[in-house]
Design a protein around this nucleic acid. Structure first.
Lengths: 344, 344
DNA sequence: CTGTTAGCGCGTTCAA
DNA sequence: TTGAACGCGCTAACAG
């Protein structure tokens, strides 16, 4: 009976378009277009008239039309495993800030560590003719890799360094980070080590750190066990992991974790079990999350410079797209540092 | 005659297009288009042929062309104050998961609590003819509000409830959350209260919680001071805040914080100062971040259901866009709960 | 420096 | 159930 009255004006919202602006400024549409893309290439007076018209009419360019005509959009696709991970939040935040200033927009997605999801995302982003594609890690399904190889834009793999990147890679060596943790503990006189990791069956980079840790220990003649847990890193998982580690070797005196969150949980669990840190157990985390400096005891950890990764990528991508050419090397090593605090 | 010289000087990367698929499947482009949008409306045999051709050629639709023709893209713009904030990460993660399944893509941006940045983002997203716009909070610059009012798509304001939303709102009352914290402390016998907040000059919602807290206390005949700090919430800020609060009233026996991160810092700081929690100081956090259940002591906090906010919005938006009509009420109250643990 | 012109790849009538 | 025609709003080559 009574048809619902739409609460908002339906469709055909006669949006102001470029030709309207052109008419208002008494120039041709292509001049408006030119002005928008290269303000300097238009006479100052004409430019002022166009600008005034834009302002007066409230013109908002249609980026789909622009992208279609130019066969390229100013969209940058970014793919991370998980948005809930503070590491990536840092990187994406930095990326967004810089790319935005350079006139790019970010399309953002997470794979939840699923290769199929990654493939679907890559495909989806590709269908926007993006200006660049940024993804996490060097490992992808063969199909994904193939798509990326043929992509008509810069492709950046981040947070990992290694052989044979698809195109560009910005990050650091997780093997070395793992080794650094072991090295630090050994230097501190620890001889019975373990690496506690969460979700390492999915998180290749955490696994690499674990392996680097074990390798470094082995080279020093120390056997380090790797203990892991399937669930995501959480303070709670730490209790489980510590129990496992202790049951395998009650004399453990030094551990590294795949993640500061885990390390925080370990701190709490040690307090509960009256295990003194660092006296009886030294702990090295990973990530340098904000609480590490201020926990009790403060947490020795490895800082991966997630923000720098974002900045470097943004700079790289912006540079290439601005026609400044590609760097000599496809790698940017953003490195890491061990930050010594109270826990080790 | 003249037609002999096509001006295809553009270096297009031979992408497969719909017409190629059509040719390969021996149908017309519009049939392919129809099949893609409504597979059921095409003869089964034709559909199979098209599908095969798509597969064989590796066709990827050009979403810009599609969006341009349809005057609508399947992009959903999402704006949060900060990506580094774990609350919003939960929401965005849930949003992305559901919207993705429904065929939408997310464009993501953060304002860093800057109204101008928000305006720019809204404008940018609008230029993609989005399917929906999702932003944080009910407060925007007049210009932004005006743009949103005239937007030709659903607009959702999230994480806050109040009068006069632009269109739809999904969230909860921060005033009530603040009151709940005060109520809890009072019920626990605390009589000298304070609210410790970070960045409240920018974060309206934190401020609302603080005011709700103070109001509830006042109604119980208790005066609660509000102490704040300009820097973002961090475990470190907690020390500063505690010092301030104590200097104003050394006898404080119950505090709420704007954020669990702050509460965590407080826990550490209390340990350092040998202030027993909850005996001498009861603490109520906000956010129910993952460590709260497992800290030492565990943290009493308020859980805002950030993931539910994301789910509700996704459901709402998907429903409206699928033509299922708009809900009777423009509000969805996702509520919150006080989770009582060790610290209060 | 500005205007003319010809599409970009697809959705959407509508007729067949 | 399918196909032809048309145009979405803009960019880019080129001529003036």
């Amino acid at each position: 009976m009574d048809e619902a009255v739409p609460r908002r004006t339906r469709r055909t919202s006669q949006a102001i378009k470029m030709s309207d602006v052109a008419k208002a400024a008494d120039v041709s549409p292509s001049t408006v277009s030119l002005f928008l893309r290269q303000p300097g290439a238009v006479a100052k007076k004409t430019g002022a008239a166009i600008e005034a018209a834009i302002e007066r009419l409230g013109y908002v360019p249609n980026l789909m039309a622009g992208g279609l005509a130019a066969a390229r959009s100013r969209v940058v696709g970014v793919i991370v495993p998980s948005m809930r991970n503070a590491f990536f939040a840092e990187t994406v935040s930095a990326l967004q800030a810089i790319l935005w200033d350079d006139g790019f927009q970010i399309m953002f997605g997470n794979t939840d560590y699923d290769e199929e999801a990654e493939l679907a995302l890559v495909r989806a982003y590709l269908s926007w003719s993006p200006s660049a594609l940024i993804l996490t890690g060097l490992h992808h399904s063969p199909q994904t890799r193939n798509l990326l190889k043929h992509a008509d834009c810069p492709v950046v793999e981040m947070w990992e360094l290694g052989d044979d990147p698809v195109d560009l890679a910005v990050g650091f060596s997780h093997d070395q980070a793992g080794r650094a943790a072991a090295h630090h503990l050994i230097r501190k006189g620890r001889r019975r080590l373990a690496f506690l990791g969460a979700r390492m069956h999915e998180d290749r980079r955490a696994m690499q750190r674990a392996e680097g840790f074990a390798a470094e220990a082995a080279e020093a003649g120390i056997q380090a066990e790797i203990v892991h847990h399937i669930r995501p890193a959480s303070t709670e998982a730490a209790a489980t992991l510590l129990a496992k580690a202790l049951s395998e070797d009650p004399g453990i005196d030094g551990v590294a974790t795949s993640n500061d969150t885990l390390a925080l949980g370990l701190l709490f669990e040690c307090a509960r079990r009256a295990i003194t840190v660092p006296e009886r157990l030294a702990i090295v985390g990973f990530g340098d999350l904000e609480f590490t400096a201020f926990s009790n005891p403060s947490l020795t950890t490895i800082r991966p410079f997630g923000d720098v990764i974002g900045e470097e990528i943004a700079r790289l991508v912006s540079g290439i797209l601005a026609g400044k050419g590609r760097p000599q090397s496809p790698f940017v090593n953003t490195g890491f540092v061990v930050i010594e605090r109270g826990s080790a």
